[in-house]
Design a protein around this nucleic acid. Structure first.
Lengths: 249, 249
DNA sequence: TCTCGTAAGATGTCTGACGTCTTACTTTGG
DNA sequence: CCAAAGTAAGACGTCAGACATCTTACGAGA
């Protein structure tokens, strides 16, 4: 599969798609060096800035790697943009379900790997969470406790994934004004998570973590129910306009 | 917090960090319009292309949204780049642990939401997986089955997350030549997952999904254990740490 | 044979310009 | 007085050319 001249639509986005296609279908293998910017511009019939922007965009999402003075190399064949697009337009419920998966796994791993320092830190975070009263402060303290558990799991990928998803989740709920209406699980259930982590009991920690989120998820489910699968994007979509999807290209 | 002129290093990256900082600390609220490219260029003391590249990079990861003829708006305060960087440099084990979280949750949700059509499709995928013999073909069939379970969960975020992480996981393992050495769970355990999904038993499906991945994870653990963080540059390095992070970009 | 210097190639950045779309204001007709 | 159409201003989209800087590799010299 070769490169074909760009036709219509947004030039940069069209270039971006072509480059991604070359990577995805293996025409450009991982680790390989791709043609120079000027060569690509000539092949595609566009200017160098257009090619350059597309390359930079792909490098910022980890698909390409630019080495100054040397060239541009393929770093990974997996394109994270579909995931990012999905998360940006996802319903609060969908994000919440993924967050549940993270919480359970983080608690399980934390129970296996926590140190005494972790326990002390988590105790402090849990105390701060209990003491918080104002809605905003409470939400922040709650997030910090969940993140604290993730940090005790010693898995940097899990930590960053939770950090990102928690942020997006709060945004989603704030956008639909649900952050004040959806009740949070009480201190008791959070205490159970920490106790299980202290007891170094992965199974119990996983169960307790699920018990923390399940009630909230159930409320969320009833609040925006009726969706099922009949209404794909509409109802709870946080990303404002669904139609905007076709915007770029 | 205001904008300060760019000093040294990579101009575009410096601009990018400043823009991200403005968004992160709330100086530019979500939904708000940011200054025009020319204004930003003047404030930062750089050229318009530099500002433009930074803006495009942030728009491609969902932080900003550019509306032609109108202006640039803040779409989200959460920056996914830390997550992407982490995943790019993660060890196979760390990615695997996250993948385990997805598998368990996908199986649980699939057990609750699967249709008869899902069951038929999963049966077909499982059969194809059992029949595959060649390593590459088997790996692909295995991935398709796991993705099939995710699709039955009816959670688009979970589906895309699994698609991305499975891809990165395979890349990681191929990079260190582990894809041929790490044994896959046998047909029996996969059969158990599908049976639980058919039986509409979320709890059993979750357990079965965990049972599928746990053995592989255990082997992985012993294979590259002992490294911990002692051998930074080695094959599966998790990126050792923060130090190596400076390279990218 | 090893080391150092130089040249070629590639990316990094800048300046300036023009095209096109969106938005908002103004004007005109009812 | 209100509403609709037309117009002008602002902002992003793209392009062109040029120069700076870094990396790499090749070749000359010790």
């Amino acid at each position: 599969m070769g490169l074909s001249p760009i036709a219509g639509g947004s030039t940069v986005d069209a270039v971006l798609e072509q480059l991604q296609a070359q990577v995805s279908d293996g025409s450009w293998a991982v680790g390989e060096r791709i043609p120079a910017e000027l060569d690509l511009a000539a092949q595609l019939g566009v200017s160098r800035p257009a090619v350059r922007e597309a390359i930079r965009a792909l490098s910022h999402v980890g698909v390409l790697e630019v080495r100054r003075g040397d060239g541009t190399y393929v770093r990974s064949g997996c394109d994270p943009r579909p995931l990012l697009r999905r998360v940006a337009r996802a319903s609060a419920r969908d994000v919440f379900e993924v967050q549940l998966a993270y919480d359970v796994q983080a608690a399980r791993l934390a129970a296996r790997r926590r140190t005494t320092a972790d326990i002390a830190r988590l105790e402090e975070l849990l105390r701060a969470r209990d003491e918080a009263t104002e809605p905003d402060a409470f939400g922040a303290a709650d997030a910090r406790f969940h993140l604290g558990v993730a940090e005790a799991s010693r898995n940097p990928v899990l930590i960053e994934a939770m950090r990102f998803f928690i942020g997006r989740l709060h945004e989603s709920m704030r956008a639909v004004r649900l952050d004040r209406e959806v009740p949070e699980a009480g201190p008791a259930r959070h205490r159970a998570v920490l106790d299980a982590i202290i007891a170094a009991d992965p199974q119990a920690a996983a169960s307790a973590a699920a018990a923390v989120v399940e009630p909230t998820l159930a409320v969320l489910e009833t609040l925006l129910d009726g969706d099922g699968d009949a209404v794909p994007g509409a109802a709870t979509t946080v990303g404002a306009d669904a139609a905007a999807d076709g915007e770029g290209r």
